[in-house]
Simulated assay, not measured.
Amino acid sequence: MENKVSRWCLISMASIPLVMTLGNSMLIPVLPIFEKKVGITSFQSSTIITSYSLAAILLIPIAGYLSDRFGRKIVILPSLILAFIGGIIAGFASWKIDDPFLWIIIGRIFQGVGAAGATPIILPLVGDLYKNNDEKTSSCLGIIETSNTFGKVLSPILGALFAAFLWFLPFFSISFFSLISIVLVFFFIKVPKDSEQNSKPLKQFIKKTKEILKKEGKWLYPVFLLGAYTMLILFAVLFFMSDILEKTHDIYGVKKGFVLAIPLFNLCVASFITGKKIKGDTATMKKVIVVGLITASFGVVFVGYASDNIALLLLVTSILGAAIGAMLPTLDAMITEGIEKEERGTITSFYSSSRFIGVAAGPPIMSLLMKEYLNVSYITGGVLGVILTLFVLKFIKP
């Protein structure tokens, strides 16, 4: 079946994480603008990111079950439509309502529900399309994760550019990008007939999931923790940088977007190269994760200390970005290739939920700690990374 996957099918799959990443990361550089325009605190502005992620966390496992039971595409399309509606709600409220904060959060929740049923389902879909070919699965997952990380590179630039025209334009742009993805998925993703899902009652599904977690939990739980850790560190650092670039370095607007894109570009390049190199080899995957974790653990410690020197800050965050970028496609491949097709959607959904936990927690934690406990928080992040490295060495066996 892998030979029949068209280039447009691959582009369509890659568009989903790209759109969903833009839907969240694009708002980070413009949060200070939202604070001024809407009259909200730094913590409240962080909830614009968190509300999206919390909705996704709660609903991703349900979406995974539904995709296993009824099919991937049947879940993905309505989810993209919800993301489209969420952007319209948040954008229209910002445009027309005097106190739009509540409606912005409602719109963001709609988008989070959409994200829950779109991005996580791509991982098992790739496994379905390239079944029994781990090398092509790894390569395709590398492209998918690169699309995700490329979205992170574009996000600060596009977010700042749109907000320079109208401060609420980023919300409407999310709907526009979602519409493009809807069209691509509808016309170009063709799920093979032998990949259609078997209907499984909920009780049987829960029982089977418990069995998998009991059998494979030793290596799955560390992978889930790694998903949460990488996104926690990444979004905490991005939130901090968005704030510090304005307050300490007087860098605003599109210029700030380009500066934020530098470490994210390194993340994107590392993700693409790693996806090409791992080729379904679990021993190589483990080495990549260990090296990436050690690098990230040491790198994150110095973010606060480097914050007064822009060149040093970009060097440290670029190294951190490359380390995280190398780990992401490796974790994707490990999850997708390590679980049988029938339960793949469910288990990858737990992994995706863990990543969204990190996304949700990063900005609000940083908003609360960066004034008084900045370096302590980053040192704690480094210590957590070292502990996770020990977990990986002990529990993930090639």
Rank of each mutant, 00 (worst) to 15 (best):
V376D: 11
A333G: 08
S271T: 03
Y130D: 07
L77P: 00
A115N: 12
L328F: 14
Y351M: 09
L59M: 03
L184R: 00
R69Y: 11
G257T: 03
F110N: 05
T50E: 02
E246D: 13
E342V: 09
V386Y: 11
G117Y: 00
S271M: 06
P170G: 07
R72S: 08
G39D: 06
T348F: 10
S181L: 09
G39W: 13
G345S: 14
S155V: 04
K203N: 12
K394M: 13
S353Q: 06
G253N: 06
E2I: 11
R108K: 10
F356G: 01
F298D: 02
L82S: 05
S297N: 06
N24Q: 14
D99V: 11
F258Q: 09
I104Y: 00
P120R: 08
L232G: 04
G358R: 02
T282Q: 15
M334F: 12
L374E: 11
S181I: 03
A270V: 03
F302D: 00
R72Q: 13
G227Q: 02
P363M: 04
D308C: 09
F168N: 00
M327D: 09
M231Y: 15
T284F: 13
P32S: 07
K207M: 12
L184G: 01
I48T: 09
Y252L: 11
F177D: 02
V386F: 15
E216N: 13
I273S: 11
P78K: 06
Y305E: 15
V126R: 02
